[in-house]
Design a protein around this nucleic acid. Structure first.
Lengths: 203, 203
DNA sequence: TCTACTTTGTTGTCAATGACTACATTGGCT
DNA sequence: AGCCAATGTAGTCATTGACAACAAAGTAGA
């Protein structure tokens, strides 16, 4: 063991990384500031210099989660496929991320974030919806989908895939395979939007 | 203050009721066994005689939540409307419940229940899906919906409405109104199932 | 270079909590 | 009457998040 210098150097990053690991292994309720400090070989008071709160740390983890998830969604949205294929890919990317990081997803969509970090979190968390919205609008212009408010329709896609993601992550699909449910969900959404959704008609 | 008898009489029910209130007011993390005991004028060790764990208490709250939610869903499924109207009503009933009891819903669908109570919880929590499945099958027989595996399709409906419910409960609909999203979601699902969902075809 | 000043860590403390134990009271059953 | 399981009380313990007082180390200007 090399004896540690007084100043860690990159404590903030180390804490964030370790916190993410802990949350993925044991959930948020398994995260303890003091244990975290021990894990990183630092005194129990040190984390407070970087995160004023336990919640502030959790918020930072959530933000990092959104950022890495957004990357995956962006990639899927730009895959070389037809419109419908890209739509399905985005859905799969979202659900795959959820299944691989279930506890992280819970943290990301938790309701009790700090008011201050809340704004950055919100705007980052909402990017996925905007990707969906752009795809819907594009498909409508191409004539693949019926007319209808893209904002509303994108929200429908998002909530549906969000439900799929959460339940798949929690193993609560009641016997159905993740693959089957994602495929059937995206199929249903696409078929519905192609046929036309009364509640989303522009007026 | 009438001085309390040594035995409370219905401590278990009192604890459950108060725990439910606390969770709805302050979330699960706002629930403390000791504070709960104080609220009910009982010593801090008393709850342990009725719930061996904090988690056991939470599980009981979750179960009660499912039971009351199932009642609402059942009622909606039996409303005097046509098939499509009943389908929409069930969706609205679910989302309404979520909006009125956001923290409770979180607890109900939490992943970390005790293994023992888990089975009863699971079977109770799954009843809503079976209601949807019966409705889909009925609509298919009536010719209102295209053929397709009712189990898969019901799951699609459930996950979609679940996502709507959770995000609506958390105020995370990004500006869209709850009403709009529920209506558009049920519309999309119905239109998709009417048109036919490739992934749900029987084979 | 000396010296303030800020950042980053450390140590000690506090009240609250969940779990556990030993003990008290009660009511039901024989 | 007398036993016994169920229910409640009181006390204890380790852990936790937050906070305060202090120490060390980097930084920037005279």
């Amino acid at each position: 063991m090399t004896d540690q210098p007084y100043h860690h150097g990159k404590l903030r990053e180390a804490l964030l990384e370790r916190a993410m690991e802990t949350i993925e292994e044991a959930g948020v309720e398994g995260l303890s500031l003091r244990q975290l400090a021990r894990d990183v070989n630092v005194s129990h008071g040190a984390p407070a210099k970087h995160f004023r709160d336990k919640q502030a740390l959790i918020d930072a983890v959530a933000l990092a989660g959104f950022e890495s998830m957004n990357r995956l969604i962006q990639d899927a949205a730009q895959s070389r496929e037809d419109l419908r294929g890209r739509f399905v890919s985005v859905g799969k990317a979202y659900v795959d991320f959820a299944v691989e990081h279930p506890a992280l997803l819970t943290v990301m969509y938790s309701t009790k974030h700090h008011p201050d970090s809340s704004e950055e979190l919100r705007s980052t968390g909402v990017q996925g919806i905007h990707v969906a919205q752009a795809m819907v609008a594009e498909a409508q212009e191409a004539g693949a989908l019926a007319a209808g408010n893209p904002e509303t329709l994108a929200m429908v896609c998002f909530v549906s895939l969000h439900g799929t993601a959460l339940l798949a992550a929690g193993g609560q699909l009641d016997g159905n395979s993740v693959e089957d449910v994602v495929t059937a969900t995206t199929d249903t959404l696409w078929a519905g939007m192609a046929a036309g959704v009364p509640a989303a008609q522009l007026h």
